[in-house]
Every structure is written in structure tokens, then in C-alpha cells.
């Protein structure tokens, strides 16, 4: 694994930004670095030297969030820009202004936040407003050229797809990317959080929502539609058995293999 901060694609002067947020531990509920954002920073560190990777956070800078943000610094980052935003504000305009000013070629984001609405819309809104390309579900960056980059996108079932993306680009990162390195305590203490004033847009729509702890969703029942009680009983008591399977007896291995191969071809699993 590529671990020691060496850039694997010798892109000189490539500017990369990562958007980081404050996460929440699923069990203890404490603030921590967000899992996907940390993976995004890890990808950033594999692309460029830590000096060329700028991290930005939009939100409050309070003692609780500071601990979480310092965990990113502990990955070998010198400073994080913190755009001051009170709770309940729309962070997209502030981030957009910051990105326009900084002008990175690649913006790395986690797929979705761990607090708040967590809708995963921010990368899409930023890409749309800036007119940049967007790729979701990034697994790996293979190479970065002057105005394109080649990436691997994670598909379901462990498959990968190679894409060539025009720069500048916004990419989202989820569980398919390699896990983030541990955060070291010393660098986390030494690193700097630079608070920046930024325009504040209140999120008016969110005020009308009601939020509650997630309710457990009911398990779906198998509903049997039958006209008589007897039919319903029979359906409920029936053993789930894959009936109608084809059984080939008394054939040679050759014929058996052909039958299997035919089914594999029909299902399209044979490449």
C-alpha cells in the first residue's frame, strides 16, 4: 500500500483540495473525523505532497469540533482553513467562493456527511455551480495529466470501471477507497486551524423540518393474496423450495459441463 506520502503520479504543481467535515462516531456519538472525508484526505495525500493539499472545513469552530478537525491535521497536514459558519447555515455558497479563489484542479469530498441532513448533495451542487466535472464513488486515482485524470470508479460487487475525467473535477469518495491512515497526536497538536470569515447564508428550508432519532423500519412481511382462507394458509405454510429445477442424471461429464456453461453464458457471468 502507498503509505508514506509519496505522490504516485508525478503531477507537478497540481493543486488538490479536500472538503472535510466533523463526523460522529456511530456508537459513542462523539465527534470524530468523518470516515469518508478521511479517506478523501488519504487519496489527496497519495496524489500530491501535503503542502499542495489544502483542506477546508465550513462550520463552527468550537472546542468539540476542534478535536475532530485536528484528527485530520494528524494525518500529516499543516493547516486547515475553517470557514466560519454558524449552525443552521447553508455552507455551499461559502465553499463555492473559497474554491473559486483557491482554484484547485481536483476537489475531494466524502460521499456524505455524518451529521445534519447528510444528503450527499454538496459535491453535486458545487460541481454544478462551478461547472466542473463530477465523479462519484471513486476507488483510486490512476494518473493525473495536464487537463485530464484517469480514475477507477467502484461499482457494486467489487467491480471497477476506468474513467477519463476532464479537470477541474469534483470527486466523491466512499467505502471503496482505501482506508485512511491513523492520526498522529504530535502533528495534530502542532497543525494550525486558520479561521476565515465567510459569507453566511441561512438554510431557511431546514427550519421547517422535524428531526427525530431514526425509527427502526418495519420488516417487510410476505403478503399472500388469495381468495380463501385455505389458500392463504397453504401459502403461509408452504416450504420455500426452489421447485422446477432441472436435474440431469445419467449423462457424461462432457454433457453436464456443456449444460452448465450454457447457463453461465445466459446469465452473463462468464467473461
Amino acid at each position: 500500500m502507498q503509505r508514506d506520502g509519496k505522490e504516485k503520479v508525478g503531477a507537478e504543481g497540481l493543486k488538490v483540495a479536500a472538503l472535510v467535515s466533523v463526523g460522529r462516531h456511530p456508537v459513542t456519538g462523539r465527534s470524530r473525523r468523518a470516515e469518508y472525508d478521511a479517506r478523501a484526505v488519504e487519496i489527496g495525500l497519495s496524489l500530491v505532497r501535503s503542502g499542495d493539499l489544502s483542506l477546508v472545513h465550513a462550520g463552527e469552530c468550537s472546542p468539540e469540533t476542534e478535536g475532530a478537525l485536528r484528527a485530520y491535521l494528524g494525518m500529516g497536514i499543516d493547516a486547515i482553513d475553517v470557514l466560519q459558519q454558524p449552525a443552521g447555515s447553508d455552507i455551499v455558497p461559502a465553499l463555492e467562493a473559497w474554491l473559486r479563489a483557491a482554484g484547485p484542479r481536483v476537489v475531494l469530498c466524502g460521499a456524505r456527511g455524518e451529521t445534519g441532513e447528510g444528503s450527499g448533495l454538496v459535491p453535486f451542487l458545487l460541481a454544478e455551480r462551478l461547472g466542473w466535472s463530477l465523479v462519484s464513488g471513486l476507488a483510486e486515482v490512476e494518473s493525473v495529466e495536464r487537463d485530464t485524470m484517469t480514475v477507477l470508479q467502484a461499482l457494486p460487487r467489487g467491480q471497477r470501471r476506468r474513467l477519463k475525467v476532464r479537470l477541474p473535477a469534483v470527486v466523491t469518495i466512499d467505502a471503496a477507497a482505501q482506508p485512511a491512515r491513523q492520526s498522529a497526536f504530535g502533528p495534530a497538536r502542532r497543525g494550525e486551524l486558520c479561521p476565515l470569515a465567510a459569507e453566511v447564508t441561512p438554510d431557511a428550508a431546514a427550519r421547517e423540518w422535524t428531526t427525530a432519532p431514526a425509527r427502526k423500519r418495519p420488516k417487510r412481511l410476505k403478503i399472500v393474496k388469495a381468495s380463501s382462507a385455505r389458500d392463504r394458509f397453504k401459502a403461509a405454510a408452504a416450504k420455500a423450495e426452489g421447485s422446477g429445477g432441472q436435474v440431469l442424471t445419467g449423462i457424461s461429464a462432457q454433457q453436464g459441463a456443456e449444460a452448465i456453461l450454457k447457463l453461465l453464458r445466459e446469465e452473463g457471468v462468464l467473461r
Binding site: 426452489g242 429445477g245 459441463a257 452448465i260 447457463l263
Partner: peptide, 29 residues
Amino acid sequence: DPGCDMVKRADLSVIADSSEVLAALVELV
């Protein structure tokens, strides 16, 4: 064994020796 539970579950069952069928499969592909 044509009477085993896996054959009942399966959509396609080949009742033959495993090594021979696998070898034939490799050869075909």
C-alpha cells in the same frame, strides 16, 4: 447424490463426479 438437498434447491443439477465435470468445464472454456 440426486436426492440431496442442494439438488432440490438448485435450478440446474448435474449428477456426476465433481472432478470429471470440472475438468470438462475447464476444457470447454
